[in-house]
Nucleic acid binder design. Structure first.
Length: 310
DNA sequence: CTGGGGAAGGGGCCC
DNA sequence: AGGGCCCCTTCCCCA
C-alpha cells in the first residue's frame, strides 16, 4: 500500500467514481478531471458518514453507497470531513480484495487503510469472503466513529479503474498529464519507484536544468529579447535592461550609508559597503586576510596568499 | 600588482 | 507560466 500523505492533494493519484448503473466501459479513458461534475455535486450528499460497498460479484464493478456520491477528487471537498465512515466488500475472493486495496487505497488516499496480504503470500489473512454477506476492511478510517458492519440499502455507483495518465514505470495514476509529468520528473517522496530525474537540456549549449521553467529562463540568454531603446544592446531579462539603462541615465538609486557614494546596482553597493569594514566578508581561512569580494579572495588564494601558495 | 568600481549573467524564490 | 526581485558571481577596467 502506498501512502500519499506527503503529496500535495492535487498531485495524488485519483480514482474516479461515477454514478451510473451501466457496465464499466474499460475502453474509454477515465475522466480524471478535478472539476466537479454536475451530477456528482458533493452538495447533494445529505450526510458525510457514508457506507460504501464494493460489489465485484457481478459482471460490472460497482461501489454501493448509502449516500448519493462521495467525491474525494472534488476540489471543494475536504478530505478530512468527507471520508466515508465504512467500506464493505462483497462477493470478492482473496485476489479481488487485494486488487481493491490497490485501487481503492489510492482512491481514498488513506494511509490508515491497511492492505491485506497479496494473494499467495505467506501471511494469508483470515477468510473474509463471507461475513454477514459483506467483508469489512480490516482497518477503516480513523476519526470516524461509525464502524457498523451492516450497510443500509445501497445505491449503486460505477467504478472505473482505467487511468488516463498512468506512470509506465510504477503504475501510479494521475488526473492530468502535468501531474504525471511532475511525478515522472521529480517523484513524490512517498513513491517507491526509482526513476532518474528528468532534466531539460538547452539545444544551443547543452546546459541542463531540472525544470522547463529554468530552461526557458536560460534560453532567454540566447534569444536576448530585451533591447535597449537607446543603444540597442540586448539582454535576457527586463531587469538587466533596467540596470543597463541606468548606465545611460546615470541614475544611482543605491546609496552607501557610510559615505556619499551611490551605485546603480545593489550588489555593487553591497560589495562597496564591505570596503568600510575592517574585517570584510570574504576571509582567507589560512592567513585571515579579508576581502570585499569573493573574486578577490579567490585571486588571493590562487596567487598571493603565502600560506596557500606554499 | 592589488583593490575597488561598473556592468552584466544567472539561479532561485515569491507573487 | 511569467515577471519582478534578491542574491551571488564573474568579467573587465582603472586608479
Amino acid at each position: 500500500m502506498e501512502s500519499y500523505k506527503s503529496c500535495p492533494l492535487k498531485k495524488r493519484p485519483v480514482f474516479y467514481v461515477e454514478e451510473s448503473p451501466a457496465p464499466v466501459d474499460f475502453d474509454q479513458p477515465q475522466d480524471l478531471s478535478l472539476k466537479r461534475k454536475a451530477d456528482h455535486d458533493i452538495s447533494t450528499v445529505p450526510h458525510k458518514r457514508n457506507n460504501f460497498v464494493l460489489d465485484l460479484s457481478s459482471t460490472s464493478s460497482t461501489i454501493s453507497s448509502t449516500s448519493p456520491v462521495y467525491r474525494p477528487d472534488s476540489p471543494d471537498s475536504s478530505f478530512e470531513s468527507e471520508q466515508p465512515s465504512n467500506i464493505h466488500l462483497r462477493g470478492l475472493n482473496q485476489s479481488e480484495i487485494f486488487n481493491f486495496y490497490q485501487t481503492a487505497g489510492s482512491f481514498f488516499n488513506y494511509q490508515h487503510l491497511t492492505p491485506p496480504s497479496s494473494p499467495g503470500s505467506s501471511s494469508e489473512p483470515e477468510d473474509l469472503s463471507v461475513r454477514n454477506g459483506f467483508i469489512p476492511l480490516p482497518v477503516l478510517f480513523h476519526g470516524f466513529g461509525d464502524y457498523s458492519m451492516e450497510p443500509e440499502t445501497p445505491k449503486i455507483i460505477k467504478v472505473k479503474d482505467t487511468p488516463r495518465f498512468k506512470c509506465e514505470k510504477c503504475g501510479k495514476c494521475y488526473s492530468t498529464s502535468t501531474g504525471l509529468q511532475k511525478h515522472e520528473q521529480f517523484h513524490c517522496p512517498a513513491a517507491d519507484c526509482n526513476q532518474v530525474k528528468k532534466t531539460f537540456s538547452c539545444d544551443k549549449c547543452d546546459r541542463t536544468y531540472n525544470s522547463m521553467g529554468a530552461l526557458k529562463m536560460h534560453i532567454r540568454t540566447h534569444t536576448l529579447p530585451c533591447k535597449c531603446p537607446i543603444c540597442g544592446k540586448a539582454f535576457s531579462r527586463p531587469w538587466l535592461l533596467q540596470g543597463h539603462i541606468r548606465t545611460h541615465t546615470g541614475e544611482k538609486p543605491f546609496q552607501c550609508k557610510q559615505c556619499d557614494r551611490a551605485f546603480a546596482d545593489r550588489s555593487n553597493l553591497r560589495a562597496h559597503e564591505q570596503t568600510h569594514f575592517d574585517v570584510k566578508k570574504y576571509v582567507c581561512n589560512l592567513c585571515d586576510k579579508s576581502f570585499s569580494r569573493m573574486s578577490l579572495l579567490n585571486k588571493h588564494q590562487a596567487t598571493n596568499c603565502q600560506i596557500c601558495v606554499v
